[in-house]
Design a protein around this nucleic acid. Structure first.
Lengths: 228, 228
DNA sequence: ATTAAAAATGGACAATCGTCCATCAAAATC
DNA sequence: GATTTTGATGGACGATTGTCCATTTTTAAT
């Protein structure tokens, strides 16, 4: 049973965190007051102090939760991806642009926290570690790609590719934030792959990843989704 | 003289706007209270209501001011740029990444307002019109480039190039926001030009714009700032 | 059933918020 | 110089903020 006591306790903690995220997404940080939170959570005023020791800590926990959720989702996606580094990159790009990850709620939450991150060190930390982990994943893949492709300035190219891909993804998120209606996920993906195809023509096309080919001499493998 | 009366009046209005921007940059929006503002401006409490009719309107005016400042600076830069579209693009990119535009203060202000823009329609509008004007400038230049280059899907390519360039710039700003210390302006510019060179090899290189060449036959004009 | 322990409640609290106005100071007009 | 006009002042105001705790309720242990 795990104890009805602790079960309720955890349930209420999650309710508070969820209420914060809902409120931040809908009304923004400045209108996310204690009254607003406890009203949404359907709990009593003292709960915030009881479970988190104060509003700041609760908001911090909510930011942490949101960040973990994002990263876990991305990592889950990655496990379904192929082994080739370009497939992993494609999966990250498409995942980061997918409805499940890139939606109004998440974007609102993310940018709301960003705007205040300068003051709340704790929030900034998570924003950082998330980016750090994502950056590491992408950089690993590009390191393998430049090795395969024999690119001249290998480490520089991997760094630029990582930096560019992340910047493009960030830019697409901002685009979605400002114009959620006219945003076109396919167009966003195509632009990123245009960038990647330019850097690594053997590994990417405008459609996404190019299937790994035989290392030397043989004819290219059958394209996955190209012919009419 | 323009009247000492109106002179003081305008001076105080500007002082209030400046105080808001300073406070937002240093402490964030949530800590930018009326008390904080009037203290920074060295004025009395009633001034905000007198000149702007309330705090919200003042903040709105400050956002507007900041936005205009950004755009005016960029437009001034553009007038010093060459006539060729690729030179105009280079100027926009370098300008947007320059110390004068991309600095801690501006980035903090910009992202703080963004985070709250969903709730304050007025702020969102400015964020929109600024982006709209910038987008128009970039798109115009790329439209000329694709025409010169004879790119197949002309309008699509111009659109993608515009979208990609703006996304990259946005991403670079975010990068600066999160890591102002390790940010490298040269690297940021190089990555963007890598993207542009890939799309328009005749117009861009990793260093920036490629000088326009005579359409047919003649020797290239003397490069402006190339030889050692 | 009784007791011990823990969690939840909701109001009290001081502090701060933004607004507004009666009052004062200064510039413009006569 | 007197009068009018307008800007500037700073305190009062009610509303709302986040924190905290005495009390009640619920679960677990005896």
């Amino acid at each position: 049973m795990a104890g009805k006591r602790e079960q309720n306790r955890e349930q209420n903690r999650q309710a508070l965190i969820g209420a914060v995220l809902d409120s931040v997404a809908e009304k923004g940080i400045s209108e996310t007051s204690v009254s607003e939170i406890i009203q949404r959570a359907g709990l009593s005023r003292g709960m915030i102090h009881l479970h988190f020791g104060g509003k700041d800590n609760l908001v911090h926990a909510a930011a942490h939760h949101s960040s973990e959720e994002y990263y876990d989702g991305l990592e889950a996606l990655l496990q379904t991806a192929g082994d080739s580094p370009q497939e992993r990159i494609e999966m990250i790009v498409r995942g980061d642009l997918s409805e499940r990850v890139l939606n109004r709620r998440n974007v609102n939450i993310w940018y709301a926290f960003r705007g205040e991150s300068r003051n709340r060190k704790a929030i900034a930390e998570h924003s950082d570690t998330r980016d750090g982990r994502l950056r590491g994943m992408i950089h690993n893949a590009f390191s393998r790609i430049v090795r395969e492709a024999g690119t001249p300035d290998a480490s520089g190219a991997a760094r630029d590719a990582t930096h560019g891909t992340l910047a493009l993804l960030e830019g697409m998120w901002t685009d979605f934030l400002l114009h959620p209606d006219r945003f076109d996920r396919e167009e966003a993906a195509r632009i990123i792959f245009r960038f990647l195809a330019a850097m690594f023509p053997a590994h990417f096309s405008l459609k996404g990843a190019v299937r790994p080919q035989q290392e030397k001499g043989a004819a290219p493998a059958a394209p996955a989704v190209s012919a009419p």
